[in-house]
Amino acid sequence: MTQKIMPQTTLGRDAQPKSKVKTSHVFIYIFLVLLAIICIVPFYIMIIYGTHTNSEIASKFIFLPGSALVENYHSMMENVNIWRGFMNSLIISCCSTALTLYFGALNAYGFAKFKFKGNKVLFWFVLATMMVPQQLGLVGTFRIMYLLHLLDTYAALILPAAANAFAVFFVKQFIDGTIPDEIMESARVDGAGEFKTFNRIILPMLVPALAALGIFSFIGSWNNFMGPLVLLFSNDKYPLPLLVQLLQGYYGTNYGVQYLGVALSVLPIIIAFAIFSKRIIGSVAIGAVKG
């Protein structure tokens, strides 16, 4: 669509006086580039500073790479195993995202396509839970995890992801907008069971919405700090955000090591984002329109 229209409008623009267009465009580009620099500079600082020793950092301003990368890396790995943290984060985030998507979609479909008694009330109830701060139930969450023997396990962070109100809301909007009742009717005529219909026919149709949602919930879970802070005890189960905080050691602060730790905790995300950025942004946009 957009591509087809594009030539037309560019033509239209060209008809305007050229100089005027250019000056305003220059300002716009300057604005955009400045903002882009602001977005990137902290990462640059972080990576550069990760290659310097503590005393270098303490004594002068630095804008070029240093030579202490290996040294910093070794002293970081002595204290925390960042790659282990990366694995932990990956396990927790992938499992939670899978649960959020499947059960969110299942539930949304139930609300969207079945006019059972109490449908509206229950749906509003689900929506209302979105307003409840996660921290509200923190003490109780600790308690229930203790009762279920889930303290200090990945499951304590993964299982609750199956009840994600935002996911329900999000997918239901999408179903309401894109999936007509006729599809279900025809599936029923074909004799497919309700769950089979959902798994084989509906679920694939939800992929665009689920992709967007998946990215949200993956990022959310990846960045979750408070949950693991309260529910995990063992360092070897800590996800990245906690591990990075661990670098603020007991005996003094080694800034070079800390910068490096922060950099490494962010690096996998930077790489993934660089590869998939178009897709990620596209998905977010899809999600937003429907939501």
Binding site: L99, T153, Y154, A155, L159, K237
Partner: peptide, 14 residues
């Protein structure tokens, strides 16, 4: 299976 998978992940530590 899904829940079990999650449990399994925790199970090793238990």
């Amino acid at each position: 299976l899904l829940i079990g998978l999650a449990m399994l992940l925790s199970g090793c530590s238990l």
